[in-house]
């Protein structure tokens, strides 16, 4: 075994351990922010594995899209609606946990039999990074054109939906008539007023 192969083996082991550990952390930690950060760790280790498989374009794209965009957006959403609330202990929680564990174990067993049953063959061709981009691009615009375009249409739909959700501009009719009764008020959506000097217990109960 040469030095390069040894380094590759060691980094594969380290990356796999990192990925599995982070993934377990994502699922098991109760703090959702930690879970989101660990998800970034999972994506990064996955990119490292891609890199070890000589797929550096896929690795870079993984970092750019999953870590740089998806994970940041998840964090954004979590931090903007950062509500700390303790879950009430539920009776018979073990039934649910048991069911989840069963489903997960079944899925795992299915996947591992698939992995074991597949006759993996080592490809002997030397992959080239520069050619990879061209090959991916060619596939996108020839035989994978339909899924590619469908994915972009899906993204466009999500985009339009987000825009519509974000700019809720119209004011309900009743609110407008309400506001016109009181002069010197700018027409804006009515918001809940914070009680001044009210009892704090009211706010907590909300």
């Amino acid at each position: 075994m040469t030095l390069a192969e040894g380094v590759q083996l060691v980094s594969t082991i380290i990356l796999s351990v990192m990925m599995i550990g982070a993934a377990i952390g994502v699922v098991l930690l109760s703090n959702i922010v930690y879970s989101a950060f660990l998800l970034g760790g999972v994506f990064i280790s996955m990119a490292g594995l891609y890199l070890l498989l000589n797929a550096d374009f896929v690795a870079t794209a993984q970092v750019l899209i999953y870590v740089g965009a998806v994970n940041v957006l998840i964090l954004f959403a979590i931090m903007l609606v950062n509500k700390r609330q303790d879950f009430a202990p539920m009776p018979k929680a073990w039934v649910r946990r048991g069911a989840t564990a069963m489903v997960c174990a079944g899925l795992f067993a299915l996947l591992s039999t698939m992995v074991l049953a597949t006759p993996w063959s080592f490809s002997t061709t030397v992959p080239s990074s520069a050619g990879a981009i061209k090959a991916i691009g060619r596939h996108f615009f020839t035989d994978f054109l339909l899924p590619f375009e469908l994915a972009s249409v899906l993204l466009l739909m999500a985009l339009v939906g987000a825009v519509i959700l974000a700019r809720r501009e119209f004011i309900p009719e009743s609110a407008v008539t309400d506001l016109q009764a009181t002069p010197l008020t700018l027409p804006e959506r009515p918001r809940e007023l914070v009680p001044v000097g009210g009892t704090p217990s009211q706010e907590e109960s909300k």
């Binding site: 970034g40 740089g68 940041v72 964090l75 981009i133």
Partner: peptide, 25 residues
């Protein structure tokens, strides 16, 4: 001389906001 070159830079620079969010939080 990575084949990815500039793309690698863009990908790496997109990791930075995670650190910023982390320290901010």
């Amino acid at each position: 001389n990575v084949g990815m070159g500039v793309f690698l830079w863009i990908a790496l620079s997109s990791v930075t906001p995670i650190g910023l969010l982390m320290s901010g939080y």
